[in-house]
Design a protein around this nucleic acid. Structure first.
Lengths: 205, 205
DNA sequence: ACAGGGGGAAAGACCGGTCTGTCTTCCCCC
DNA sequence: GGGGGAAGACAGACCGGTCTTTCCCCCTGT
């Protein structure tokens, strides 16, 4: 056969050119992060994932033994990239005292709610999508508990009384404001911040 | 053929006997209410719905032109049966003053969170499952706004200043506590109720 | 330095199952 | 006898997951 007849295909070189010489697993993760975070888990199929990342199906399943394992990896990256670097670290940067840093969470939320690609907290979304008994729901619950642990640590720095109770109450405000922002209430962060102020006053003793 | 060979089948008569001589549409709605409210929308297929309600597929599609139309009907019934009668009316019954009635919402939530069949608020769940742009998500948002309207009306009865702002803040507490209850925090209602007390104090002028 | 071999990756057929939705057949009852 | 309903086959699409074929590239041995 004429070898030239087989050469011209390979549309995936375009995808490689777009995302650089990254390895397959990196491209898969980048596509998964975008699709899962904006559209949820169940709405995104494996076929779409491999098509958008320019990767063969066998390659996908060599790196991830199942779709669920990719979702686990996504949740972990979401925790690092979004929760830790995007929200908590940014909030610590904006406030000079632990009290200010706790309230700054809602300032970061306010900016986040205005973004066009804002969709919802992936952990809450996956927990509701898969149910709290599903392994993926369990993982989401653990990541939410991890956020609460960080809030509790800052509350302890601030010298608040009953920091665990404070953290649990603050996470009610965080989750509630996110849900309300999905509905279109972009000012939900300000309202939650005000309630956080009152909550903090009652935990100063 | 021997006519007796055909008679003994009809397993749906058992279902009819269980749910009484109700019409097909009533049985479908009852099954849909149970399955959709406990497992969400996307996880429940039409085949399971018709099987559990002992109804033929053609009968299903004669009453509901599509699955989505059944979900619309479910959301409407959920609003009547759960939101109005289960939560708001019960809260009004428990409190003797409008202020008490507003706080009683979280007492009703506290009981609800302890139920075994508690899963989540169907409106929030469907909104996140389908997305806020989907017609079903839009309908869910409207029902959530309807709840806010009722809260606002009670706030006006209570003479609170800026009742709309109050209602939006209270719904943050309601949604946040529900999400946290899904995670397993059965005391989320008490925490939210305490923050509602502080919120109300600041809206008394 | 060059030939050859082996592994990785792309393309995509294929599998069994499920999804929503349509249509046919038969039967029962009015 | 006619309409409604049960039963279920069927269509067409999609799901997650497996496997085959083909190619390219890199690594190794000489």
């Amino acid at each position: 056969m004429n070898p030239e007849a087989k050469v011209p295909a390979f549309p995936q070189v375009a995808a490689v050119a777009q995302s650089g010489p990254a390895h397959s697993v990196d491209r898969i993760m980048a596509v998964a992060y975008e699709l899962f975070s904006t559209r949820g888990v169940r709405d995104v199929g494996v076929n779409e994932l491999i098509e958008r990342s320019g990767v063969a199906k066998a390659t996908f399943y060599r790196h991830f033994p199942s779709k669920d394992s990719l979702v686990f990896a996504f949740l972990e990256q979401r925790d690092k990239q979004w929760t830790m670097d995007g929200i908590l670290l940014e909030a610590r940067r904006r406030g000079s005292t632990p009290q200010e840093q706790l309230l700054a969470i809602f300032d970061v939320f306010g900016d986040w709610f205005l973004r066009e690609d804002f969709e919802a907290c992936s952990f809450v979304r996956v927990m509701l999508e898969m149910g709290p008994a599903h392994p993926l729901g369990q993982a989401s619950i653990e990541y939410l508990a991890k956020i609460r642990g960080h809030v509790q640590a800052v509350a302890e720095e601030a010298g608040l009384v009953n920091p665990e109770e404070f953290a649990r109450s603050l996470l009610i405000l965080m989750k509630g404001s996110v849900i309300q922002a999905v509905e279109g209430d972009t000012l939900a962060a300000e309202r939650a911040r005000q309630m956080a102020v009152w909550l903090m006053e009652h935990h100063r003793g």
